[in-house]
Design a protein around this nucleic acid. Structure first.
Lengths: 142, 142
DNA sequence: TTTATTGTAATGATTTATGTTACAACATGA
DNA sequence: TCATGTTGTAACATAAATCATTACAATAAA
């Protein structure tokens, strides 16, 4: 199963907030226009980004702003903010393998560390990419 | 979203086939017993593993066997055999970002390469782990 | 021919993702 | 104070994916 579009959407949102911060009040409706996604979806993701300390949102008068320098916001920060993974585990196990069977009894023991290595490799790469990298490229295109 | 338990289940299945190949005829019912998963689910996964050339299945008389040396079966082989990911892309994008918006127009351009790097890091790690590694540990426990 | 097994269709329950409407809470300017 | 625009969130709907389960034809071998 693919990783939810909430992640790419969240990156898009932060890129938008930064790009238009001086020209527009960046509201959920504004962001809905750029992403072609329902404003409520935007607000939900903004809420998660806010909970993670990545953005600030002004209630009532409206508008979102980025809460820290872009070079201090990594893809991993965003991924963790919006991806609701059970216990933070990337891989899902079948429940209740048979404890009577030597394989069923030990399948976790022999896989957990290895799967953790895989997850770490992915997260390490995610953490090496910042929103500043992305914004540099966007500004280059403009 | 987590990666489907089909993956860990498939590893479990291959580990079982190898562990019990000399003592039992390893049928879908037998594997269902070790995994605590419905035999039809097992057969579907076995079918995917067979399509990927990882196992051989005997119809009628029954029983599964491993099709190549365990050190030539990596986690990546199994992952690709059972994970049905659209176009092989790990990350999912929201459809139709607004082409009128400079961010919407370029979001793919500035993210695709980077996300590809993340996916490669994960797949590289998956490819470095073989079923032989797993079986060594299982035999160590027995 | 009997038996055990695989391959697969059909169906259902559950979960997750995403979209949508609606509205109270809130901030601000008139 | 009031009107307006916005956020936060509940409620509900739809679609897709996962996993389970029953059923049965096709197959192989005793």
């Amino acid at each position: 199963m693919q990783i939810s579009s909430r992640f790419t959407l969240a990156v898009h949102i932060i890129a938008c907030i930064d790009t238009f911060k001086d020209e527009y009040k960046v509201t959920s409706d504004f962001l809905a226009g750029s992403t072609n996604v329902n404003p409520v979806i935007i607000r939900r993701i903004l809420g998660q980004l806010k909970a993670a300390g990545l953005v600030e949102i002004t209630r009532g008068s409206g508008g979102a702003a980025i809460a820290r320098p872009l070079d201090q916001i990594s893809f991993l920060d965003i991924y963790r903010a919006v991806e609701c993974i059970e216990n933070g585990e990337l891989f899902h196990f079948h429940e209740n393998p048979n404890k009577e069977c030597p394989v069923g009894r030990n399948i976790h023991l022999v896989m957990d560390d290895r799967l953790h290595r895989v997850q770490c490799a992915m997260e390490k790469e995610l953490s090496s990419i910042t929103l500043e990298d992305v914004q540099k490229d966007i500004k280059k295109v403009l």
